[in-house]
């Protein structure tokens, strides 16, 4: 009976400490020092939220650079992956389709090897990045659809270069480029 009482008292205490005070403390610190990050690193465009810098979006319009394939079509409710095994027939079919689609849409030689990030869906279904080589392979198509001249096309090239994120602290992660940012900036090119 005494142990039961102790249990209740300690449960209540730790619920308050680790379930209420602790999250509120972190929220307090967050909103004081890093309000943007705490709120989801949102970007606004014309006074409206246009997305989060961390969450990828799906692009169909050929004026835009395309994101990686996604098992949930970039709908975050809920996030998800295909979970296909490497020996799955369905995955094999999808990969062939994506290979074909990517080369045709970008007017590439059918023998070109498409970067793996454009062939395989991400873990979250919300991956905001593509590899710099995937961006470069889409460059001609984007420039063509937008009827860009040489100088404007050059500007996209500079954009890709400047937006490419190197591995953090030299050795962490892969070189990558944020698709949403790239498309937002491409829209600004005159």
């Amino acid at each position: 009976m005494k142990t039961l009482w102790m249990t209740l008292k300690f449960l209540l205490f730790f619920t308050l400490l680790t379930g209420v005070i602790y999250p509120l403390l972190i929220t307090g610190i967050g909103w004081t020092i890093f309000p943007r990050q705490s709120g989801g690193s949102l970007i606004s465009k014309k006074g409206q939220y246009a997305g989060s810098i961390l969450i990828g979006q799906e692009f169909h319009d050929k004026r835009y650079f395309f994101s990686r394939p996604s098992a949930v079509s970039y709908n975050p409710l809920p996030s998800g992956a295909s979970n296909f095994s490497v020996t799955s027939k369905e995955l094999a079919k999808l990969v062939r389709e994506r290979q074909l689609k990517f080369t045709v849409e970008n007017g590439l030689d059918s023998l070109i090897s498409v970067p793996p990030d454009m062939l395989f869906a991400s873990g979250s279904g919300l991956d905001p990045h593509i590899s710099p080589s995937s961006a470069l392979l889409q460059l001609e198509r984007v420039a063509r659809v937008r009827q860009f001249n040489k100088e404007q096309r050059q500007k996209i090239l500079v954009l890709i270069d400047s937006l490419t994120e190197s591995p953090q602290f030299i050795c962490l992660g892969e070189p990558r480029i944020n698709v949403l940012l790239l498309n937002l900036e491409t829209d600004k090119i005159q």
Binding site: A81, V86, P116, F120, S122, S124, D127, H129, R176
Partner: peptide, 14 residues
């Protein structure tokens, strides 16, 4: 299915 290269199914690029 894409041959012998890197397989990124279910992996995040970053």
């Amino acid at each position: 299915p894409a041959g012998k290269g890197l397989v990124l199914e279910g992996k995040e690029l970053r």
